[in-house]
Computed example of a mutant assay.
Amino acid sequence: MQRLHRVILFGLLGLFAAFFLLPFYVMLVTSLKDMEEIRNGSLLSLPGMLRLDSWAKAWGSACTGMSCGGLQPYFVNSLMMIVPAVAVSTVLGALNGYIFTKWKFRGSELLFALMLFGVFMPLQVVLLPMSQVLGWVGLSDSIWGLVCVHVLMGLASTTLFFRNYYLSLPDELIKAAMLDGAGFFRIFWRIVLPLSTPILVVTVIWQFTNIWNDFLFGVVFSGADSKPITVGLNNLANTSSSVKEYNVDMAAALIAALPTLAVYVLAGKYFVRGLTAGAVKG
């Protein structure tokens, strides 16, 4: 009976997984067909011959509005934006969590509670004040302006992650290091940060996914030469032509999704472990 239950359970899980992956399968097989095969076949049929022409066009020559350079420049813009944004927001979140748990001061709990508003605040609320500030400091319509926006908007989440995780670290470690003469930053770099691998992985994956998939800030705060991949994908899909090339659109969508897919495939199990490591604290 137990074996039958196990077979039924795994059968249902397999069915749900197949249903969940069906859109991805349709996108993949469509991107490998030519337009004649798409028109004469069905969505679920396999390509008669593997063709990568649509991928090459989506990357290097598809029109995205008035430009016909494909997704390549947008992809590069996203890479230039996401590396410093993820690194800075993660380091600042770790420092904040370290301070709020191991170096508390008068009003720290209130300050942390105020920071939590950033987790629940609608993104549309900050568009106007953020655009004004970026204009004042000369960073509007630039990649570095987008970096600043994503660092600030991600700081509340990264602080929450690290603060909850650091609550599980014993205070005796910090006190012992202080008795040995270690200061604030030395304790952080030599003791706290090496113990933070699980939550570091969680934060990096979380920030990477949110920033890479962001469209709202990308379309509002970017200029002609600093648009991220999501804006480029939208422009490509909405560019009108005599013939709608669904294979190119699907290939472009997969190109835009590949980095986040790779991150979750390579580090997905560490993401779950890191979340559970700090889930019962705070």
Rank of each mutant, 00 (worst) to 15 (best):
L134P: 10
L134E: 11
L134S: 15
G135F: 09
W136H: 11
V137R: 14
V137E: 10
V137M: 12
G138I: 07
S140D: 02
S140W: 01
D141M: 13
S142N: 09
I143T: 07
G145V: 06
G145M: 09
G145N: 02
G145W: 07
V147H: 15
V147I: 14
C148I: 13
C148D: 13
C148P: 13
C148W: 11
V149T: 14
V149E: 08
V149N: 11
V151P: 09
L152R: 14
G154S: 15
G154N: 14
L155C: 13
L155E: 13
A156R: 15
A156H: 15
T158R: 08
T159G: 14
T159L: 15
T159P: 10
L160N: 00
L160V: 08
F161V: 12
F161T: 03
F162H: 06
F162I: 11
F162N: 07
R163H: 12
R163K: 12
Y165C: 07
Y166K: 08
L167V: 06
S168D: 08
L169P: 00
L169W: 09
P170M: 14
P170N: 11
D171W: 04
D171V: 14
D171P: 10
E172A: 13
L173W: 05
I174F: 01
A176L: 01
A177G: 03
A177W: 01
M178V: 12
M178K: 09
L179M: 13
D180S: 08
D180K: 08
G181K: 06
G183Y: 04
F184W: 05
F184G: 07
F185M: 10
F185K: 10
R186F: 03
I187M: 09
I187K: 10
F188L: 09
R190H: 10
R190P: 04
I191R: 08
I191Y: 02
L193I: 04
L193C: 03
P194T: 12
L195W: 05
L195H: 03
S196H: 03
T197R: 01
T197Q: 05
T197K: 06
P198R: 05
P198H: 03
P198F: 10
I199W: 04
I199Y: 01
L200N: 04
L200H: 06
L200C: 08
V202I: 09
V202K: 07
T203N: 03
T203P: 01
T203W: 05
V204T: 06
I205A: 08
W206T: 06
F208H: 02
F208S: 09
T209G: 07
N210A: 11
N210H: 10
I211N: 10
W212F: 05
N213Y: 02
N213F: 00
N213R: 01
L216G: 08
F217H: 12
G218N: 02
G218D: 04
V219Q: 06
V219T: 00
V219D: 03
F221I: 01
S222M: 01
S222Y: 00
A224P: 11
D225I: 02
D225G: 00
S226W: 02
K227Y: 00
I229Y: 02
I229N: 00
T230V: 05
V231K: 04
